[in-house]
Computed example of a mutant assay.
Amino acid sequence: MALARAIKQEAQAIGFDAVGIARVDTAPALPSMLAARLTGWLQRGFHATMAWMERTPEKRADPRLVLPGCRSIIVVGMNYFTGHRADERPGHGRIARYAWGKDYHEVLESRLKALETRITALAPNAATKSYVDTGPIMEKAWAQQAGLGWIGKHSNLVSAEHGSWLLLGEILTTLDLDADEPATDLCGSCTLCLQACPTQAIAEPYIVDANRCISYLTIELRGAAAVPDELRRRMGNHIFGCDDCLDVCPFNLRAEPTHEPAFQPSPATLAPDLDALAQLDDAAFRRTFQESPIKRAKLAGLQQNLSIAKNNQ
């Protein structure tokens, strides 16, 4: 218990807003349940063109196949809610909140590495491996197991303290740490997120069909694959990601703004001018979004999103 407490104190000192610990070996049925859930989702084709998600689903479900001897997972979260409201006057687009500031991968990765270093100082013989949304880890399920929140009906994590606005990272470790109490699902009978989705991408509670999800359509869909006309009309002014299902969650009424400067919006992300962005060439695109998650869409992807948003307006 003393070691787990010390690690949590280090995580908070580094700047994480939430930290919890899940045990892998005390939940032996969980990996097989997660594998079955993931396999069923893949079989329904809900991963769309993201073929990489088909690779080794059993590894994604079992951290012991990622880090041999893994006993515990330290899950951390950072609040990215800034309290600002997007400027949605005519001629402006909408960008998901997590992409208003700097790339969260870089923000969390550097702090996770610092936390790994401190864990090594506390327990020199421990093996660790950290990820921020890039490794074969079903992080939301382990975040729920670690007590950070529960997976809501929109399939995102909901925190009783931070609402829908936590970015997650995790450290797998061979350390035998005391676990936190898993979070309880508090969604109840609420279906606001299902009703709010413009494209009806939430096929059923807790299950999202990426083929219809605006986040997928504006970020992951690439190349010659065209957005169906029916979905284009429903995308409104979204040009990178979508927060519609998150915005309506009642637990966001409790959310306090973040103190992290890296997540603060720029004029280009809070009030993106559709015409101005449409004029960007490749060099200007890279310069404007070099520290932003928006670079993932690439210029061609952003231009397609801008065209759809302008037509819708």
Rank of each mutant, 00 (worst) to 15 (best):
F263D: 05
F16P: 12
A143M: 06
R254V: 02
E220S: 03
A114Q: 08
G83M: 09
T117Q: 15
A268G: 04
A196R: 09
L246D: 10
P57K: 11
Y206P: 02
F263M: 10
A203P: 02
L302N: 07
A309E: 00
W150M: 14
L65K: 10
K310G: 00
G169R: 14
R234L: 15
D273M: 01
D176A: 13
C193E: 11
E204N: 02
A183Q: 10
A2Q: 13
A300L: 05
C70G: 07
I308L: 03
L194W: 05
H259V: 10
D185L: 12
P31V: 12
I119D: 11
Q9C: 08
A225W: 02
K8P: 01
A226K: 06
F285D: 05
A86W: 05
T49G: 02
E291W: 12
P265A: 04
N125I: 09
I74D: 11
S215E: 11
T49H: 13
E54Y: 00
K129F: 03
L246R: 05
N312W: 09
L122E: 13
A225S: 12
F251S: 11
A51H: 11
L148Q: 11
I214T: 12
H105T: 13
T134Y: 06
P257T: 04
R89F: 01
P63L: 14
L186R: 15
A4R: 11
R296E: 03
A2N: 14
I219R: 06
Y104P: 05
Q145Y: 11
S164T: 15
R64H: 04
N79F: 07
S110H: 10
Q279V: 02
A203L: 04
D273F: 00
L221N: 00
R212K: 14
D133R: 10
A160E: 07
I95T: 02
A126C: 09
A255T: 13
R60W: 14
E220A: 09
E170M: 08
Q279G: 02
V158K: 13
A121N: 06
E88A: 07
D176L: 10
Q200G: 09
P31C: 15
D247R: 08
L280I: 00
G40K: 01
R44L: 15
N79T: 04
A179K: 01
T120E: 08
Q303P: 04
A203F: 06
R55D: 04
E256H: 01
Q290T: 08
L38C: 11
A271K: 04
P63A: 15
A4W: 05
A284P: 02
E181W: 06
L34I: 01
L280G: 02
Q264A: 15
M1L: 14
G236E: 03
A141C: 08
I74Q: 07
C187G: 05
G149P: 11
I14Q: 03
